[in-house]
Design a protein around this nucleic acid. Structure first.
Lengths: 215, 215
DNA sequence: CCTCCTTTACTCGCCTACGAATATACGTCC
DNA sequence: GGACGTATATTCGTAGGCGAGTAAAGGAGG
């Protein structure tokens, strides 16, 4: 049901996942997440870290296990996960796995308004996107294969998932690009004409009256 | 380059996309976005709307075109897009189209820590996810086909994109689920053993010493 | 024509997110 | 050994996000 969590920030999940091992101070949690390469999944914002930890404590998912003053001045506070915290953690993961969430994508938003650019410009921009994506994906795939040789898949499924989804994105974009550059995308002329003359072509005209896309 | 925008909220893009047509007041922008079915892409948060509009004005992308007092008390302020606003709008769209952004997904985060659940529970949760996803996608596909019969594809690519990506997600999840339920996913026994006895299996043991996933 | 519900339209205020500043310890290179 | 860069740890300020509250207007029943 994707209920609203007391602590919603995904960084909180990373914190719980880390501190469940043993009590530690916030900075150490972040370091561990980073060391394990999971910071790629849940980008660490240093400003948020301490807020999130404090919130987790406020809601009883963490508790202070003492504070460490030796060495560094900044008096580090050590946190320990509580039973409620373990509960919340597992529950959260269950929820995330079971409930498909519609995440909003920037690219999708851009596609929904691409009409303000000319088809030719769009084509060239998408060509750039595809090139970048190809390169990124090649690197990503190489990195994954490298890791797979020393780490069990159990700890790498999220990377496999990410790769699969991005590959689908690439494939889709490529096919769209094909339609655009070969001129088979329907309405291309009207689109071009509209930008050239500023006048709305007949076939689009009535759509502007009511809301475009309205049922 | 994905530069940091003065106004970063995607709702701002929706606002610009709407107010570019003609001057209007914030509520009308939101209504139009909703009427056009684009609220699916950029979910409208009423609290954010006015903040975003005010910010767009502060940065010179919108300007006040007068205020309307007739009728409703709440004194509506009419905004008009400026040249800078048109510029920013096009620029923003260009940027979003050309630059693939790594969006962080909740599902991905969950997959990165799925190990705390037992493989059997994960399997059952994913089965649920797949079922939900199938249903949602069937609806989405039907809706898209319905729209395609009356609206040019030009205004529906973002829906096609979304569908394609979510179908890839479904396919990937299905295949993972296959491996899990047929027992072909590597390390299943170790995983199960770990949860049953609480002891870390040999093959995972050395991974916990250093950071898992560290290079 | 009075009541009540919905739609229109916006404001308020809390909470969160996070960049930037801060401050010490720890090497290391000349 | 002192100057300087980098890693360790945390606090602070504040802009922004957004739920919830407010309030008039329009319309539908009785």
């Amino acid at each position: 049901m994707a209920k609203r969590r007391k602590v919603n920030n995904m960084l909180g999940l990373a914190v719980l996942a880390t501190v469940i091992e043993r009590p530690m101070h916030p900075y150490e949690m972040a370091s561990l997440v980073r060391a394990r390469g999971k910071d790629d999944d849940m980008r660490i914002k240093w400003g948020s870290l301490y807020t999130v930890v404090r919130n987790l404590e406020k809601h009883g998912f963490l508790e202070v296990a003492g504070s460490d003053k030796e060495g560094g001045h900044p008096e580090r506070t050590i946190y320990r996960i509580t039973d409620a915290g373990r509960q919340e953690y597992a529950d959260w993961v269950r929820d995330l796995l079971a409930t498909p969430e519609r995440e909003q994508s920037a690219f999708k938003a851009a596609l929904s308004v691409w009409g303000i650019l000319t088809p030719d410009e769009v084509t060239s921009l998408l060509r750039g996107r595809v090139a970048l994506l190809e390169k990124e994906l090649a690197d990503q795939r190489a990195a994954l294969n490298g890791h797979l040789s020393e780490i069990p898949r159990l700890f790498l499924v999220e990377a496999e998932y990410d790769l699969a989804v991005r590959e689908a994105e690439l494939a889709w974009t490529r096919s769209l690009l094909g339609e655009l550059s070969e001129g088979t995308f329907p309405g291309l002329d009207a689109w071009r004409h509209w930008h050239a003359t500023g006048e709305v072509p007949q076939e689009l005209h009535d759509l502007f009256g009511r809301g475009i896309g309205a049922d």
